[in-house]
């Protein structure tokens, strides 16, 4: 579904990503784990068109999306939930969700999508008129995810959904990610919380200072000595 080959990204003279290769198949949850500054977010931003890579190709559903404007990529069915949630703080919950459906042309189907989002995140329905900036961190994360779902993505990119959340909420968010995946959305998950990410993912890639150093089945990686030492605390 998503294929990345030989991706090189530079920030000025700094070589942030070195020859990244990976792919995401339909129906999977693939996770990209790694420490701070490993290049996880950079990878996501290059996929969603926020950063232009120097070399390499990214293709989505068979068509190349390298250098395509971010707004067109969303229309193709690839939507990113940005790091730190980035909800529209002064708009209401409902308005935030409406913004998520911005690229949609099929107005008449929107009602069903609201229902889908509200059954998945009942808490958002309770707070439908509330100003989004006054929601708690967990609710904001739910809103960010709900907003992305409103664009009916085929592939959902999640950037650190566990950031700044209490452990209990992290669990809840991750089980929701699994539900979303079961409902037919492919997920590419970027996480620092390697333990949680590996527990729900099908496959995983480990990034280290711009290189992919390990890849494979999520369960195997979670069991491997190297990963345990570096990311899972022994």
């Amino acid at each position: 579904m998503l294929k990345i080959e030989g991706l090189n990204v530079f920030y000025g003279t700094i070589h942030a990503l070195h020859d990244i290769n990976f792919e995401v198949n339909e129906g999977e949850i693939v996770t990209l784990i790694g420490a701070n500054g490993a290049g996880k977010t950079t990878t996501l931003h290059s996929i969603s068109g926020l950063i232009e890579p120097k070399t390499g190709s990214i293709s989505f559903m068979g068509s190349p999306i390298t250098g395509v404007a971010a707004n067109k990529i969303v229309k193709m069915g690839l939507c990113q939930v940005p790091e730190g949630r980035r909800i529209f703080a002064n708009l209401s919950v409902l308005e935030n969700l409406e913004m998520g459906a911005y690229t949609r042309n099929d107005k008449h189907n929107l009602k069903d999508d609201y229902e889908v989002v509200f059954t998945r995140f009942p808490r958002l329905k309770e707070r439908i008129k509330q100003i989004a900036g006054t929601l708690s961190g967990g609710e904001q994360q739910m809103l960010a995810m709900g907003r992305a779902l409103m664009s009916r993505p085929k592939l959902l990119l999640l950037d650190e959904p566990s950031m700044g959340l209490a452990p209990l909420l992290v669990k809840e968010i991750f089980s929701i990610i699994q539900d979303i995946n079961k409902a037919g959305t492919t997920v590419l998950l970027v996480e620092q919380n390697a333990n949680m990410a590996l527990s729900i993912a099908t496959r995983a890639y480990v990034l280290e200072t711009g290189h992919i150093v390990l890849s494979g089945d999520a369960k195997e990686l979670a069991a491997s000595e190297e990963v345990r030492k570096a990311y899972l605390g022994g």
């Binding site: 971010a70 707004n71 990529i73 939930v81 529209f88 703080a89 708009l91 913004m99 992305a148």
Partner: peptide
């Protein structure tokens, strides 16, 4: 107008929602 307001709120988020900022 909605697109414009969302740019005020958060440019990156607006971009990821498919708005041509």
């Amino acid at each position: 107008g909605r697109a414009i307001v969302s740019i005020r709120e958060d440019e990156i988020a607006a971009n990821s929602m498919g708005i041509n900022v």
